[in-house]
């Protein structure tokens, strides 16, 4: 039997409902569990990464109700009723999101650890609609660090997708 580490570690669990990557979930969660730990340790969605665990690196970036946030700084119980999209819900092998394809085409990573957060963050940025120039993309993506230093190619990949009219129409 699978041991549920989070429930075992917690005090009084709180019952919450989440829609994660389109799937409705009912969960009993101790208040101290972050959304990131819930996703990774309980739901086995390990695409979202625990880099710094303090909101400084962006590797845990997910979309909550379409908005990008650091999952490591969210208490899961506070997100009761929310729709969560992780990198696993963005695309899958054979059905990649245009940004995932563009990251591959532009070689926008080396080790790949920051990539799920980069892509979720870029989707959030495009939803927000405030980045029009390369300088604005760089500024509005500054919450996602890349220790390999692939920033140039990351910006190219995002610009590529933002520049495609098909994507623009789909987003509207």
């Amino acid at each position: 039997m699978e041991i549920d580490r989070l429930t075992a570690a917690g005090p009084t669990a709180v019952s919450i409902a989440l829609k994660v990557n389109g799937v409705e979930r009912r969960l009993e969660v101790p208040p101290s569990v972050t959304l990131l730990d819930l996703l990774r340790e309980r739901l086995d969605l390990t695409g979202s990464k625990k880099g710094c665990d303090q909101g400084q690196c962006g590797a845990c970036t997910v979309l909550v109700n379409g908005r990008r946030v650091n999952a490591c700084l969210q208490l899961a119980v506070m997100n009761d009723g929310a729709e969560i999209t992780t990198i696993e819900g963005v695309g899958q092998p054979g059905a990649l999101h245009p940004l995932q394809e563009a990251f591959i085409a532009h070689d926008a990573f080396q080790c790949g650890y920051c990539t799920p957060g980069q892509i979720c963050s870029a989707i959030g940025m495009m939803n927000e609609g405030h980045a029009k120039t390369e300088a604005e993309i760089r500024e509005l993506m500054s919450g996602n660090l890349c220790r390999c230093g692939a920033y140039g190619n990351i910006v190219d990949a995002i610009e590529d997708v933002m520049g495609r009219s098909a994507f623009k129409e789909a987003a509207e």
């Binding site: 909101g55 962006g58 970036t61 908005r67 990008r68 946030v69 650091n70 700084l73 969210q74 963050s121 959030g124 940025m125 927000e128 509005l140 993506m141 500054s142 919450g143 996602n144």
Partner: peptide, 9 residues
């Protein structure tokens, strides 16, 4: 201040 993710939250 901060990052876009933090400002959203």
């Amino acid at each position: 201040g901060a990052s876009a993710q933090l400002r959203n939250a």
